[in-house]
Structure formats: C-alpha cells, structure tokens
Amino acid sequence: MNTGEPLFDSNPDTESREAASPAFRALIQSLVNEQAYAVLCVQGGGQPYGALVAFAFSEDLRHAVFATPVTTRKYRLLCECDHVALVIDNRPDRANELMDVEAVTATGRSQLIARGREFDELADLLISRHPYLRSFLRAETCALFRVDIVRFLHVARFQEVHQWIPAARS
C-alpha cells in the first residue's frame, strides 16, 4: 500500500544531536565526494520537477554548485522559485543491497551567479570535480547556480535518518 511516505525518509523529523559531529559530517562529506551527480529538485506553479546535474560542494558543505543551459526547464523554474533540493545517493543496481544504500537530501535556496569573481571561483570548484565541463561553463548561455544549504537529511540502513542544519552550527 502506498502510504504517501517517501521510502527512505520515513521519519524526517528525527533529529540527532550527533548529526553535527565530525563523524557525521565526514559521512556526508564522503558521500558527496564519492558521487558526481545529484538529482536536482525544483518546482513551479505547484508542479515538482527533477533533473540530473553534475555538482560540487564547498569544503565546509555550506554551498553546492551546479550549471545548466539557460534554455532548459530547470533554469526557468529556478528563476521562478529558489527553493530546491539535491538528492545524492550511492544506490547499487541490485535490489538486495538496500541496507547498504546511503542517501543525502540537501535542501536550500538557489542563487543565479552573475559572471565575475564569484562565478569564476564557483566554476573552478565545479571544474575541479568535473574537468570536462570547462568549455560548457565558458559558454555565455551556461548559467551557474549556488545552493546555500539549509538542511542535510542523511538516510542509511533503509530508514535511519539524521538531520543536520549547517547554518545552525555554532
């Protein structure tokens, strides 16, 4: 029966004091470092929309960065609404390894970055993970977005969920 609950995020309100511990942070860091692509979740007029993007995270995990051509749906939707999520996971292609799957949902606000110093710095960050995107990023019709992360939700062992709000760190 479909309960309407997400499979992995069955208890999203679980908060863990340990979430911000170095070990937990390292867990998230490791997953975002291992994975090259994320599902970007956006919305417009009440309609959700998802797209695969190549991403990179800043060292402190406060920001993520990705790029898209300006002619895409995701670009239009991002211009309308800056509330976004990135889903990063290490799912295998076999069903019986479910307990080994880890996923991070990073929610936050996106911001279109104008060409200039910050653009160059963030583009370098993205290129360091994805060097083949160098010429793509040089194109004038390529838009670069920074996502300011508000919350990380980490899911492991099917339903074990921890949350971390980086901005709330002291």
Binding site: P69, T71, A139, E140
Partner: peptide, 20 residues
C-alpha cells in the same frame, strides 16, 4: 525554436514550463 549557438543546442517549443 531556440538556437543556442554557444552550446550547440536547438530547443523546440516555448521555453515555458508546461504544468502537468
């Protein structure tokens, strides 16, 4: 159509998002 000569992409149809 939209012709993106920077990236080599031709997008067909209006750029607006069609609501489902």
């Amino acid at each position: 159509v939209t012709v993106d000569g920077h990236l080599g992409i031709v997008t067909i149809g209006a750029a607006d998002f069609d609501l489902e």
